[in-house]
């Protein structure tokens, strides 16, 4: 038990380790699945619209296809870099601004509104999908609108000098 608590004590460190392990497992899986056909790629809501360019290109140019980066590895890479950037950036926030930081980051996490738009805007073919989309839309917009407004309201209270 003490060993477990010891591990969890090192949250930030363990965070990095798990991120690295996670991504390297994915990489291994990727390498292992080279032999499998990549034809049966399931189109996700958005996958159709993005990052399908490189695959089309790879067909036309065999030399390019050898060098082409898998878009997914790029996304994982983006994720890794952002986590490190986030930690660097946010350790600099002074403790007096921690509450606005939390409400502000709440607003940013409302970025799922992008996904909610895509879900809610797919038309009326499926009532369930519309329902899910609308609820997701409501929740995400509560986050976005409420988060930014309350952060602004709070930050305007912070005064450097005595108000006269």
């Amino acid at each position: 038990m003490s060993k477990i608590t010891f591990f969890i004590k090192k949250v930030p460190l363990m965070g990095w380790v798990s991120v690295i392990v996670f991504s390297s497992v994915l990489l291994l899986l990727f390498l292992g699945s080279f032999t499998q056909s990549a034809q049966a790629k399931a189109p996700s809501i958005c996958a159709v619209s993005q990052f399908s360019v490189s695959q089309q290109d790879s067909v036309s140019n065999p030399y390019q296809s050898e060098r082409a980066l898998n878009p997914m590895t790029l996304l994982i890479f983006t994720f890794l870099i952002t986590v490190f950037l986030g930690v660097e950036l946010l350790t600099k926030v002074p403790s007096q601004l921690h509450t606005p930081l939390m409400s502000g980051s709440n607003a940013i996490s409302g970025i799922t509104v992008v996904g909610a738009c895509l879900a809610a805007g797919q038309g009326r073919e499926s009532l369930l999908l519309v329902l899910i989309g609308v609820i997701a839309m409501i929740c995400a917009m509560i986050n976005v609108a409420g988060g930014y407004l309350v952060t602004d309201r709070m930050l305007r209270m912070f005064k450097g000098k005595e108000r006269k």
Binding site: F30, S33, Q36, A38, K41, A47, L75
Partner: peptide, 9 residues
């Protein structure tokens, strides 16, 4: 689809 990196992720 099959188990390529995109689908696994």
């Amino acid at each position: 689809g099959g188990y390529n990196l995109e689908n696994i992720v």
